[in-house]
Amino acid sequence: MAVTNYALYTGCIIPLRYPDIENSIRETMPLLGANVYDMVGAGCCPPGGAFWSVDEISGLIQSARNISIAEFMEKDLVAVCNGCFCYLKNTNMMLKSDKEKREKVNTILNNVGRKYQGTISVYHLVEILHDHIGIEKIKNSIKLNLDGVKAAVHYGCHLLRPSDHLMAENPEKPHKLDALVEALGLESVYYPKKLSCCGAGGGMRGNNPEVTLKILEKKLMNIKYSEPDCIVTACPFCFLQFDLGQKGLREKGEDFCIPVFYYNQLLGLSMGLPKNRIAVLSETPRDGFIKKYYGVE
C-alpha cells in the first residue's frame, strides 16, 4: 500500500475538548495509508472572529507561523476543523501570491526564528479521505456495513466557502462528505437548507447564546424532517454546536436528541476500533446508536 505523510494540524477544540476525535483520526488514517505527524508547537489558527476581525496582519502572522511548522517538516498540512482549514488555506493562498504581504509577515516571523516559504499545500481531512485515499479503499477497510442507517450530513461553512479560495468542494452542490458517509453503508438523506450555518461561528456562540440556539433550532428542524438516525460532520466546532446545542435546547424543554459523530469516529467504529478511545465524549447520548448498530457497549 502506498503511504503518504501529512503534518496533522489539530487546532484547539479537537485536542482540548474532544480528544477522542483526535484518537479516531490518528488511528484510522494510517490504516488507509495516510500517516499523520504532530505539528510540535502549533498554536491557534487563529479564528476569524477575533484576530482577523480587528487586524489582518495579526491573523496572517499566526497562521503563517503554523504553516511554517509544516514546511519545516516538509509535509503537506491536513486541517481537521473547518475554521482552521479556511483561515490556514486562505493565508497560504494569500502569501503565496502577494509578495508584499509575504515580506511583511516574514519580517515579523524572523523575530521568533521562523520563516514562511510557501512550499506546502493546506488540505481539509475530507479532501485527503475523498481525493487522496479514495472511496474504494475506505469501502475495503471496513468490517461492518451500516446498510440502511440514515445520516444527515452537515458540511459546515468553512469547508465550502469562500470557494474561490478554498476550492475543496462545489459550494452549492458538495458531494465528498456524502460519498464518504455512504462508503460506510449509511444512506445520506436529503434535508432542506443542508448548506446553511450551524450558528456557532464568528463569535456568535460566545456572544449570543440565545441567537446561536435559535439558528441551531432552525437547522435541526430541517434535519428532523428527514428523520435521520445520526448527524455526521467533519468540523469539531459544528460537532460541538450540535452536541452541546441539542443539550441546551433539551434544557429549554425542546425534543432534540440526535446522535452526532465526527466522520472518523464512525469510520473507526466501522473498522472495528474500540469505542472507548474514539467515541466517548458527548453530551448528546450516542451509546444507544453505537450499541444498536455496532453491537458494542
Binding site: C12, P15, L16, R17, Y18, N23, G43, C44, R277, L281
Partner: peptide, 19 residues
C-alpha cells in the same frame, strides 16, 4: 496558546488515553 483552556483539555485527554 489556544482559544480554549488547556488544563481541562489535558484531563479529557487522560480520560480517553490520548497521546
Amino acid at each position: 496558546g489556544h482559544a480554549v483552556t488547556v488544563e481541562k483539555g489535558i484531563k479529557l485527554r487522560n480520560k480517553v488515553n490520548a497521546p
